[in-house]
Structure formats: structure tokens, C-alpha cells
Design a protein around this nucleic acid. Structure first.
Lengths: 341, 341
DNA sequence: GTGAAAGCGCTAACAA
DNA sequence: TTGTTAGCGCTTTCAC
């Protein structure tokens, strides 16, 4: 069984094109790949034949013969996660510009399968892998990288054939908290993503450190983990309010959590930013349109993605690029204001 | 150049496994694919060898030899669009369950390249294609399907080797408008996605038809197209308000537009739902957390995706499944209320 | 049941 | 510059 390109009823292969043009298959291959100089006459004949037969090279055969598939595995937590949307888009675009294809795979919440998925990608003969965050053990990654270069996004790892593209989450969190401090807030609660993902840890760390540097004591009761996006943020906010602790601002480690918190506050008739300041993290597309528009920290997803795409291709070419990761940015909208006393 | 699996320094191929197990390559292949009965003894030997050498089949070689790559091209308007997120997730999951792989490609706004991308997928030897919406001409699709089965999501096309999975957008829009009618609203504005995509047309059609059936005259001035998501919705809402036309409710053909409209209303100090009712379309994850939580129409993205994934595999197997597409659902939250007069 | 042999469509030495 | 030849790693007849 086979399903290649056809011309009428006939299968159009490179050999068929060669025959049609009256040249050898290698000549056709050379023209297709620009591997060597070919005379004008033959080039014309071949190009005509290609057009006449509507020939399309078989990427699979090419991959087998050359050992390069020109495809890059992209393993992300969620193919459709809003946080990574920009990064994924940029990866696709940038890879295309460089002649590569992404093979997107999402973990779909099942972190244990992650290594298995990497192996699947290997069996698909990807030339490289871009891994977003991820829980695979360092040792396994090191080993994997011996055969296939890896570019990590959001995770640091020093190893041959491995590059890391890491935004400074902690610094971003710090900007958010510093912004609140600058507005006079002293009691700042934190609602962060549950779990101990690197992002979650970095975010919490930025929060704590910034408070400490401001000479403020760190109140553990003001720190809550939340799972389940909007719902989690809502729940955490409710608990915070129920605790009757004193606080005038909330930093949410994720815009979705912030949205949930927003709703919880509204349900209690607490106005943002008049009675409570709120900062998110991520700058989702909806952030400018929440009520009120959400002050948040912009993750340079697009830049991270295209950086990673370029890095992986460099790695494949045997180079070891130095990467300049762009900083996060505070986007001040309307959910924060100066503390009135 | 080659990058297969290795054992120590040595390349691990099927042949290598065969040698290790003391059988012929064909036997190994048979075991791997379950193509024929093999004696217990040999099966054990082979399985041990596979484990010992850590062998992983080369999917590319397999694809070339068998003519089937077990991969399905998935062409979507945007790999990371929130509207299609559920569908894409479901496609990935459902294809995996059936032993197939998705090759996600997004149009990235460039509709002219769409056919070229289909050709790229063909050159990658995908066994089938799932196409979300899309502008390719029917004739080209028909032709393409002669070689590679296609499953269309959100687009109707009768042709051999083609299946369509179409949610009744028009009916969904109708539910939204009917809901507003039921609440006593008579002057209902419409902010829809600009352009003449099938979805946009269907949505507008549902709106018009429902009004007409209610015996209401259709006021063209209350219908606005909006581009650019939130910003577009905001702009359209502003224009609507500036027009000083009389209306008490707005139906937005897209949740993102609704969010923009929400903000515009808030800027004018018009309270939702007290002074203006608002219905969205799509039920994005943020919809339950907007201010107020958005009444909207849920698109059964997950169901559409898994339906399509199953349909395409059936098509590949030469069947022609009959598809039961689930209906859209109105999700009533807090952005609509009875008109007070 | 099992093995030998012939390819899948292409690339890449190696000659010429 | 061009053609010939030998694979890439696997599946699949076809014999046995």
C-alpha cells in the first residue's frame, strides 16, 4: 500500500521525474537540494518535468536516506495553553523560517509519560527537541541529548548539546511585588500555582525576597497555593478573606488565578483597586479586558519561543549559541492603586 | 549522517535485534507489528533482545516501507487559539488512543498558504488530514481527498473520502438571541466577527432569523462587524453607544469580542446586566470569571475534536462513518437579565 | 512458523 | 558536471 503523489494514475517519484527530464536521479536530487552545480539545460528540463508531473518530494524517504528529517519535537505542558500560546506560535514561525517543522506534543497533564513522549519523538527521528518546562530528570535529559540536541524553555540545565532559555520568573514576580510596595502596600498576599514546578517556586521566591528586601516580615498565612485556574484563584481568595487577616493587595502568580480572585472579591463587594489591589502574572490576551483591566507581568512568550527555535537549529548545526533572554515587563493597568490610609 | 538509537556506540536497528535474538529480521518485524503468529520461544528471545539493546523502531523507515506513517495532519487557523483549544486537545488525545500522531500546523493568519500547507503535509506522507474551517476551494479539497482522506471541522463538503463535522453555529446564535427575547429584550444589537468566514455568516444568520421569527424588524444599524478580538469588541460597543440607537442587549459572536464590549460598557458606567444584557459565544475558560460572569454559548470543542479524530481514522480504514454532532448549549451566567421597563 | 530477498523513494559516496 | 551504485531501516511478498 502506498500513497505518494500521482500523475494520472501513475506514481510520481524522483525517478519518474528523472526519466521525464532525461537525466539521472542524482541530478534531480542535486537540483532539489542545491547540493551541487548543475547545468542550466538540465536544470530547466528537470524543473519543467517537476511542474508537468506535479512532483512533490517524499519527505519520509528523504528523511530515511539523509538521516535528517528537518523536524523538531516540541513538547509542551499543553498544546493549547494560553500561557504558552505565544511561545508555540513563535516556535512554529521561526522553525518554518529556518526550514524546519515542529512536531507538537502536549503532556496533557500526565507528567509520567513525558519521557516516553521524548522517546516517541526520537523514534520519529526528530533532529532536535524543544522542551517547555517539564519534569524529566536531568540525568535522562543529559543522556537523551547525547543523541538529539535539546533546547529547554523555562528550565536550567548545563550539559553538552543542551541549551536553556529561561525567563527570570523570580525577577518578574519581584517587579509585581515592588510595584505594590511602591504604592504603599505593606500587607501583600500571594496566591500561587500549587505544586513545585520551577515556575511556581521562582514566583514564590521573588515574592518572598522582595518583601524581605523591603524589610517586611513574611507572613506565611498570606501565602496560598491554588490549583485549577480560575476556580482555584477564587477559592484561595475566599479563604484569604475568610481568614480576616489584614492585607491590602494580592499578587497572583498566574493571570487565570487573578481572574478567579477578581470574581471572589466582587462577590464580597470589595472593589478593585479601591479596596484591594491585584496583580497577575502572564499577561493573557484577556488581561486588558478584565474588570478592571489587570495589572500584570508580561512574559515574553514570543521572544522565548523564537529564541528557542533558533537555538535548537544552531545546536543541530553543531554551534553553541549564547542566548540573550529578554526581561519580563510589568504592565500597569487598573487593578492596582496607591494605598489610602 | 544518521541519528538512530544506539547501544553503547553501536546503532541499534531491527537487524541488530534480529542478530542478537538469533532470528531473521522478518520475525522481529512480525512480532513488532503483530503481523503473524510467532513461536513463544522466538518471541521471548526477541523481546529480551529488544529490552537488552533498548531498541526503538525507526518510524521514518517504517513509514517508507509500509506506506503508512500513522500520522494525521491537523491544519488549524491558530495552533494556540482559545476557541479551538479544546478541539485540538481532544484530537491529540483521541488520535493517540487510536495509534496515530497529529502533525499540527497553523495557518498563522495567512490563508493563501493554506493549500501549500496541505501539500506540505502530503509530502510528509500523512495518512489523513483534519482541517479546521479553512478557505481552500472545494475543488482542491475534493482533488486532495482522492489521495488523502480529509475530515473537515466547521465546514460542509460532500465528496468521496471527505467527512464533515459541523456544529450548528446558527442554532447556537439562535439560542443566544432567543434567550434575550425570552427576557423581554426587543432591541438586540449584534457584534460579530468581521469577514465572511462560515462561522461569521452562520452566527449572523442565526441572529437575523431568530429576530425575524419573533416578528421583529431587523435593524441593520444594530449590526456591527469587529476585528481584533477584545479591542474590536470594545470599539464596536463604543460605536454602538455613540450611535444613540435604542437597544437593551448585545449579542457578541465571540467571547473575546464580548470581553471588549464589557469593558466599553464599564467605561461608560453602564452596568451589566442591569442596564445592558450581554451574551457571548464560545465559552472560553475565562467566561465564568469575567465581571459579571458571561452568559454565552458553549461550543462542544472537545466533542468535535474527538469526533473528527475518530472519523479520519475510519476514513483511512475505508469506512464512511455517520456522524452525530452534539448540539451547542446556552450557558446562562450573570450578564443577562430580564428587561425592566 | 520462518527466512531470504526485494523493495519503499531518496541521498551520497564514488567514478567517470 | 553527471551517472552509477549502494545503501538508509523497515515491511512484505514468496518460498520453504
Amino acid at each position: 500500500m502506498q500513497r505518494p503523489t500521482r500523475y494520472g494514475d501513475e506514481v510520481v517519484t524522483l525517478d519518474r521525474v528523472a526519466r521525464e527530464a532525461g537525466v539521472s536521479p542524482s541530478t534531480v536530487s542535486r537540483i532539489l537540494n542545491g547540493t551541487a552545480r548543475v547545468s542550466e539545460a538540465k536544470r530547466d528540463a528537470v524543473e519543467q518535468a517537476i511542474r508537468r508531473l506535479n512532483y512533490q518530494p517524499n519527505a519520509v524517504a528523504r528523511g530515511l536516506a539523509s538521516g535528517r528529517t528537518l523536524s523538531i519535537g516540541v513538547l509542551a505542558p499543553d498544546i493549547a495553553s494560553p500561557l504558552y500560546a505565544d511561545a508555540l506560535r513563535a516556535i512554529e514561525q521561526s522553525l518554518a523560517d529556518q526550514g524546519y517543522w515542529p512536531l507538537f506534543v502536549s503532556r496533557q497533564g500526565d507528567d509520567r509519560h513525558e519521557y516516553a513522549q521524548l522517546c516517541q519523538l526520537a523514534s520519529r527521528q526528530v533532529d532536535g527537541v524543544i522542551l517547555l518546562a517539564g519534569q524529566v530528570e536531568d540525568e535522562r535529559l543529559r543522556d537523551y541529548a547525547l543523541r538529539t540536541p535539546i533546547c529547554l524553555i523555562g528550565r536550567q540545565l548545563q550539559a553538552p548539546n543542551v541549551q536553556s532559555v529561561v525567563a527570570d520568573i523570580s525577577a518578574g514576580a519581584s517587579m509585581a511585588v515592588q510595584h505594590l510596595l511602591d504604592l504603599g502596600h505593606r500587607r501583600i498576599a500571594y496566591i500561587g500555582p500549587a505544586g513545585d514546578s520551577p515556575e511556581a517556586q521562582a514566583c514564590l521566591h521573588g515574592y518572598q525576597q522582595t518583601l524581605r528586601q523591603a524589610g517586611l516580615e513574611f507572613d506565611r498565612r498570606l501565602v496560598l497555593g491554588a490549583e485549577g485556574q480560575g476556580a482555584g484563584g477564587m477559592l484561595a481568595m475566599q479563604r484569604l478573606l475568610d481568614s480576616r487577616l489584614d492585607f491590602s493587595a494580592v499578587f497572583a502568580g498566574d493571570d487565570q488565578l487573578a481572574l478567579g480572585a477578581q470574581l471572589a472579591l466582587r462577590r464580597r463587594n470589595l472593589r478593585i483597586p479601591d479596596e484591594m489591589s491585584l496583580v497577575g502574572f502572564g499577561d493573557l490576551p484577556v488581561a486588558p479586558y478584565t474588570t478592571p483591566p489587570l495589572t500584570t507581568v508580561r512574559l515574553p512568550g514570543h521572544e522565548l519561543g523564537s529564541l528557542a527555535a533558533k537555538a535548537i537549529v544552531r545546536l543541530i548545526d553543531g554551534e553553541t549559541p549564547r542566548l540573550e533572554v529578554p526581561p519580563l515587563q510589568l504592565v500597569i493597568r487598573e487593578s492596582t492603586r496607591r494605598l489610602r490610609r
